[in-house]
Each structure stands twice: as structure tokens, then as C-alpha cells.
Write a protein that binds this DNA or RNA. Sequence first.
RNA 1: UGCCGCAUAGCUCAGUCGGUAGAGCAGCUGACUGUUAAUCAGCGGGUCGUAGGUUCGAGUCCUACUGCGGCAGCCA
Length: 474
Amino acid sequence: MDYRRQYIRDLFASKAGTQASAYGWVKTRRDSKGVSFVQLSDGSCFQDLQVVIEANVVPEELLKKATTGACVCFEGEIVESPAAGQAVELKAKALTVFGEADPNQYPLQKKGASFEFLREIAHLRARGNTFGAVMRIRSLAAHAVHTFFQSRGFHYIQTPIITASDCEGAGEMFSVTTNLEVNEPLEGEHQGTRMQAYRLKSVSPKEDFFGKPAYLTVSGQLEAETFALGLTNVYTFGPTFRAENSSTSRHLAEFWMIEPEMAFCDLEGDMNLAEEFLKAVIGDILEFGAADLGFFNQRIEPELLKTLEHVVESPFERLTYTEAIKLLESSQVSFEYPVSWGVDLQSEHERWLTEVKIGRPVILTDYPAEIKAFYMRMNQDGKTVRAMDVLAPRIGEIIGGSQREERLEVLEERIKSAGLSLDPYWWYLDLRRFGSAPHSGFGLGFERLLMYVTGMKNIRDVIPYFRVPGSADF
RNA sequence: UGCCGCAUAGCUCAGUCGGUAGAGCAGCUGACUGUUAAUCAGCGGGUCGUAGGUUCGAGUCCUACUGCGGCAGCCA
């Protein structure tokens, strides 16, 4: 056997009379007196192939093994389907069963299971309609991301996953160390399991693998900046890690981030790219993922297609933070957290702006310096910085970006007033010392984007295997 | 981390006032020449998350724990 070159997706496009082999997993089987029907899926497309097995064509004992979840191959002929529901179907002549799935033990069934239950059997989720559709859209979206940047002259930079710099204080970091050794097997309930107690081999980080404390990256931005100031336009697309104890439907400890960084680009250019980017990626998904999106629109989020088409067609609203505060103050809505200039916007405020007031994505700019990171460029007023957040209905902040502070003295002052030491940033400051350039960039959570385009409500259901506090199974 | 909610059959759930366990689907047996989450008849399937407590009696009330979920904070 070679790898598959013909998928069920291709069989739907083939002419009646074509001899074909259909490999896949059985979704359901329906038996009648003289004929059986099998719904077969290989994950290549949303639609299942209907296989028709007339009586005595394959041995009854063999056919009985083709239960939900079993892996099989049907050989036969593509014929026009006499019934509604599909244009063509496969009239079976032979059946091979590769792997049975004992119906008494196989946890998936044709009737829907809850997303919570599916998370417990994440290794089997790909067999289901919803998660199969999610993963096809995820793959398509990743391709669209690369296509967008590559076609505009951006270079793909793989920034390190292990880092020794506590970048921006973007969040709690995971330590990376070999400075541990097994102490004692744990007593009690963990006895005999792989659970063990550890102790430090050395109290000095100098004796650790990297000779200093090391962490999993929380962002590739600072490294991306170094490459933008040399290659002009770059982007990263890779995993990032946050050890925050956040247990919500929008947070993961391991997630994928997209971070473009552009030299000779100010905040207006940054906003233009962000808007262009979202429209292009969503446009590609609408075009090439139509069948899967149709499913999401029907079963997950009824307003999905309408919203996505609206995003692609209409210009994003652009407001300064100060203007947004004024709108919120005059809204007559009693928010749980009161609004005044200088406070960070809460979820309820973002949702009101984007869902109630504007009704489409909103870009907010020029936030107070105190509530934003040190690397964002200070405005003339000395109070606000050139930051921008793209807020989307349903999920809130989807993109955060800024024009970076390119002036050495100003940047040094900002680092110090943030309570950070200059030393670890010597290389980041070098960028301003030698050949500094105005530059901008933004960060985008890939899973947040997927939630937006699929309508899925929990971020754990748009990533193959989720990592959250207290859970790292599979 | 805080607040709230949930935990009953393989799955999705119901269970009234505290009185001794129910349905649909799945499974098994059979019926039906074309089904589309097929349909119809019959059968099997439960330590009601765990540990205590109140009570003559607890799936139901109380406490703790565990797990899961939602919201908030933090953020992407």
C-alpha cells in the first residue's frame, strides 16, 4: 500500500461507471432485508460516502464487522444515487475489514456526544463530524496565513521556543530545566505510578543546562523585531506558552501565535495589515472551506456565515482609546466595572463596543502608557502609546499590536520605569543603538481566530490536544 | 485565583413532597428490497462521582473532597 492519492472527496467528483476503492472509517450502517447502507468517511471532506451493499455481495459475517468506528475498504463502482441525499454512491463488490471496533467498547456513536465527553477521548475526536471539520479548517487557515505573508514578501522566521529572556512580562512562564532528579516515589494513591517527587540537584542556575534560568517562550516578538531590522518584513507562526492559572473557554497553556513585524511601518500601516490579514484569511476560508463552514453555520453558530461575509466586506471601525472611553461613558449602560480614562477595558466593555455599539470588528488605538507594554512607542502627549487592539464580536480581543519604540533613550526610560533591568535587553537595545528604524507589528492567537471562523465556543475544541491548568493528557 | 453551576445506564438526559431506578440512542435477537441520526417488536444493561452526616428511610437534604463546566481576573 502506498499513501492515498485518491480520497472520498475525489470519488464525489468522479463519473458514474468508475471503478473505485473507498478507504475509511464507518460512521453508521443501516440494514434492510436485501440491502445495507454504510456511511464512510476518510476525513477528506465533510460529506460521507454512501456505500450500498446488496444482499449476498459480501459475506454476511464480514459485513457485520463493519460497525461504527471500524476501518474498512469497499471496492466497487460509482453509480448515480437513486435517492435524495447524495448525487453519487458506491455500489460495493468487495469489502476488506482492516480494523474492527467492538460496538460494546467503542465510545463514539452516530448520535452526537458532548464536547466535554469528546475532550476525554481526544485521541478519537478526529472521527467525528465537528472535530473533523475543525481540523480541516485549522489546516486551511494555517495555509492561508502562510500564503498571505509569503505573497507579500514576508519572510517566515522560526523564533526559539526555549528562551532566557523574560520578554515583556506577558505572562507567567514555564521553566525549562534539567536541574531536577528523582527523589522518592510518592506514597499513597500515586504509589506504583509514574508520579514521583523531585528535588533540585543544585540551587545555582549556573549549574543548570543553559547556565541560567530558561523558559518556554511567551512570545517571539522581540526576536522577530531583530529580524525585521534586517529582512524588513517577517512573521512568526509557532507555539507559545503561558503558565497563567487561567481556566476559561478562551485560554490555553500552549497555543499558536502569528506575529508579523515590519520595518518602515507605523501604526496606520500596522492597522492596515491587520485588517487586510483578517479579511484575506477569512476570505480564503469562506472560499475553500465552504462545506465545513456550512456545517458550523447550521449546527454551531447560526449567524456565522453572515458575520464572516460582513467582516470581509466592511471596513473595520477605528477609534482611539480616548474616543472609546467617551462612548462607554455616554452609553447609559451600568457596567460591573466603572469606566474612566486610564482604566483597562474589561470584557464587558469590549463586547459592548464591538457587539452593541459598532456591530463589527473595531480597532482601538493610543492606549494609556501605564496599561501597555514598555516597547510601545510613546506619543507626543507623553501619556499614550501607539498601541492597537482589534476587537471582534463574540470573542473580544483577537489582535494586539503596536508601533515599537525605536528611540534608544525613550526605550531605556520605559524599561526602567516598568521596574525591569536593562541588562537582559542589551541585544534588544542594540537594535536601537545601531541602525534603528520605525517599525511595527502585532500578535494574533491562532486558536482565537479559529474560534471566530468556526463559531466554536471553547478554545479546547479547536486545537488537536489542549493543555490547560491541571490537564495535559495525550 | 475568586464566584456560580453540574456529577444518575456505554452516550444524551428525566427523576415531583425524602418512600427503594426511568426514557431515547447505542448493544443483543428478530422483522422489513433503497435507507439518510432508517423504522417496527422483544431482551439485557445501575454501588445514582467519593467519604461522612441528618433521618425509620437519601438519587433527592447537609458537610468535605474529587472531577467537569460557565463567568470574572490575566491575556492571545
